[in-house]
């Protein structure tokens, strides 16, 4: 059996009147790249801060590697944190920042230096050791924070939106590097983000947070393809729900269904369904958005409701696309891609 790096049971936290975390149960495996995904204010940071020990839970327990740590101080837990704003010590050099955790743990000076240099090399910052944090770019600071947290080889690394402050290009580059680094060092990463794409591309598993609770835990494919709640369906990927009467008429059975936009083909209204396992619906194109590599169609269905369809621009160009607005189309998808979403009562 695989070991559990973290186990949360009934974890709760209130700040006065506001309930930030309203009962979270979660198990994170050893060596996993685990993401906590959710909108702003959904309680991700608060959960992370309770795991690190900065915040005392109002209820519930926290276990790290099978040991209860609920009441322990941060310095008594084998986890390190990469803060959203990096929290580098401004009065220390990069090297001193990285070596700080080792110094605190009384690692001899010579070894400290060697390990700090090695950690800086791991994040590709050789030769920056003598600089101050203020003399680095955002991306470089981010790497220093990473090196500082990794150098002590904790069992778990907590990362609170570590890429949030970086521009898109750098963020994409760091996503790849971070993932590679995690594979290399084999440490459990708990990664907080509100960017669903980031969570989908990097994680082994994702927990989707909503209003202080977890709505779904699963692999990126599970969360994306089989959303467990309407919230997950709309937060992860583009919101595309068939509900109520129109769902009944189009799908055949009442309920709420989620269909991913890229699963829907846009055909001429006169086209016939290719195969019996295909479902179709006719409607009018309300809006066309040219995205470069693809085009997004917003279609108002005759049966009621609106669906978004995403088509690769295999042959079409931006001029053709504009002509679609206001035309009648038939949407078609494979029945198994209309996923019934349980609606909580």
């Amino acid at each position: 059996m695989e070991g559990m790096a973290i186990r949360l049971q009934g974890l709760r936290k209130s700040f006065g009147e506001t309930t930030a975390v309203a009962g979270v149960d979660l198990e994170i495996r050893d060596g996993e790249f685990f993401s906590m995904l959710g909108p702003s204010g959904s309680g991700k940071t608060t959960v992370l801060r309770m795991i690190a020990g900065f915040e005392a839970p109002s209820g519930g327990r926290i276990e790290l590697a099978g040991q209860e740590v609920t009441g322990l101080a941060p310095f008594e837990r084998d986890v390190h944190t990469v803060f959203q704003d990096y929290a580098l010590f401004p009065h220390m050099t990069v090297e001193q920042n990285v070596a700080y955790g080792l110094k605190v743990r009384k690692v001899p000076k010579a070894e400290r230096l060697v390990r700090a240099r090695k950690a800086l090399a791991e994040v590709r910052l050789e030769g920056f050791g003598k600089r101050r944090p203020s003399q680095l770019s955002g991306g470089q600071r981010q790497r220093v924070a990473l090196a500082r947290a990794l150098v002590g080889r904790p069992r778990v690394l907590l990362l609170d939106e570590p890429l949030g402050a970086l521009d898109l290009k750098l963020r994409e580059q760091m996503q790849v590097e971070l993932k590679a680094l995690q594979r290399e060092v084999g440490i459990t990463f708990v990664f907080v983000t509100h960017d669903q794409e980031e969570a989908l591309t990097m994680s082994d598993r994702i927990a989707v947070f909503h209003q202080g609770r977890i709505e779904q835990v699963g692999t990126p494919a599970e969360v994306y393809e089989r959303p467990a709640t309407p919230f997950v369906a709309s937060f992860v990927g583009t919101s595309n729900l068939l509900e109520g009467e129109s769902a009944h008429r189009i799908v055949g059975t009442p309920g709420t269904y989620s269909i991913r936009p890229e699963k829907i083909r846009v055909l001429k209204e006169s086209a016939e369904a290719d195969q019996p396992e295909h479902a179709t619906a006719v409607g009018t194109v309300a809006e066309v958005v040219y995205l470069g590599d693809a085009t997004r169609f917003l279609v108002d269905l005759d049966a009621g409701g609106r669906l978004t369809a995403l088509q690769q621009n295999l042959e079409t160009s931006s001029e053709d696309v504009a002509a679609y607005r206001g035309t009648r189309v038939r949407l078609q998808w494979h029945r198994r891609h209309a996923v019934a979403v349980p609606v909580p009562d």
């Binding site: 390190h80 944190t81 803060f83 929290a87 605190v104």
Partner: peptide, 11 residues
């Protein structure tokens, strides 16, 4: 945050 970071690193 700096105080948190210090405690986090074992101080």
């Amino acid at each position: 945050n700096l105080l948190d970071a210090s405690a986090d690193l074992g101080a």
